[in-house]
Computed example of a mutant assay.
Amino acid sequence: MTPVSWTFDASDGGGLTIKTDVTGKASKLGHRLTIAMKSWTAAVDWSGDIPTAVTLTAEVDSLDVVDGEGGVTPLIGPEKILAKSNALKTLDAKRYPQIRFRSDDIAAIETGFSLRGTMEIHGVTREMTVIVTVADDGTKWHCASESTVRQSDYGIKPYSQMLGAMKVVDEVTVFFEAERTKPSVNPPKG
């Protein structure tokens, strides 16, 4: 059987999104952010119908603050730019320009696959298991996952203001979605 590799990016009907929360005595002042990673790629290596390896790489400087819930005022243009700047500083994007996940320990589960691998963020690599659900609508596969990442596990000090009275919660939620069109069983006749 010839190995096959699939490559996904933001154009494949999905995305890589991070959601934050806020805590502290002044948490009502802060926004719960939705951050989209605009530049990412994922590759899946296959042997027949079994995935054998998965890699995902996100470019840290591609992060974009797309929404902010809560806060005293709405999160608009200048505040989004400031939130992005703070996030890039917190992640030290110039020194650590990429976030990477790699797995070659993949197990089929009822709803999709369990991927045991390593996550590298901020120059720190840790073991992580990601559950990917796969739904088949007949014409395409829809892949999705939701994982929690603790910033401090990767040497990141969560952003804070007002001497810690308002700070980003250590755990952030990472969402991934992508679609893959199924190969045509009966190609159109020309």
Score class of each variant (00 low, 15 high):
23 T>K: 07
32 R>Y: 07
35 I>D: 01
51 P>D: 12
41 T>Y: 15
45 D>W: 10
45 D>V: 03
38 K>M: 03
45 D>G: 07
27 S>E: 08
38 K>I: 02
23 T>N: 04
29 L>M: 07
34 T>Y: 13
29 L>Q: 01
30 G>W: 00
19 K>E: 10
31 H>N: 01
15 G>I: 10
27 S>Y: 09
49 D>A: 12
37 M>H: 12
24 G>M: 05
51 P>G: 06
20 T>E: 07
47 S>I: 08
20 T>D: 01
39 S>F: 13
30 G>C: 08
20 T>P: 00
18 I>T: 09
28 K>L: 09
21 D>G: 04
26 A>D: 00
31 H>W: 09
47 S>L: 14
21 D>P: 02
44 V>A: 06
29 L>R: 01
38 K>G: 02
41 T>H: 13
51 P>R: 08
23 T>H: 06
27 S>D: 03
17 T>H: 15
16 L>A: 10
26 A>W: 03
24 G>S: 09
33 L>G: 00
40 W>Q: 05
38 K>Q: 02
44 V>H: 00
41 T>D: 05
32 R>W: 09
17 T>R: 14
24 G>W: 06
44 V>D: 00
33 L>K: 03
20 T>W: 03
43 A>D: 03
41 T>K: 15
18 I>F: 15
39 S>V: 13
46 W>D: 03
31 H>F: 05
35 I>N: 09
43 A>G: 02
45 D>Y: 07
27 S>I: 04
14 G>M: 12
42 A>F: 10
45 D>E: 08
39 S>A: 15
22 V>G: 05
14 G>C: 11
41 T>R: 14
30 G>S: 03
46 W>L: 14
49 D>S: 14
34 T>N: 13
32 R>N: 13
38 K>N: 03
15 G>Y: 05
18 I>K: 08
17 T>F: 12
43 A>L: 06
17 T>N: 15
16 L>I: 08
26 A>F: 06
39 S>E: 13
48 G>A: 10
22 V>S: 05
43 A>C: 07
35 I>E: 01
22 V>W: 00
44 V>E: 02
23 T>Y: 06
17 T>P: 11
33 L>E: 00
30 G>Y: 00
34 T>L: 12
47 S>V: 04
25 K>S: 13
32 R>P: 00
24 G>T: 10
45 D>A: 09
45 D>I: 03
24 G>K: 06
29 L>T: 01
33 L>R: 00
48 G>K: 09
23 T>E: 04
16 L>G: 00
27 S>M: 04
36 A>I: 10
50 I>T: 14
18 I>M: 10
30 G>I: 06
39 S>I: 14
46 W>N: 12
46 W>Q: 12
40 W>C: 01
46 W>I: 10
37 M>D: 08
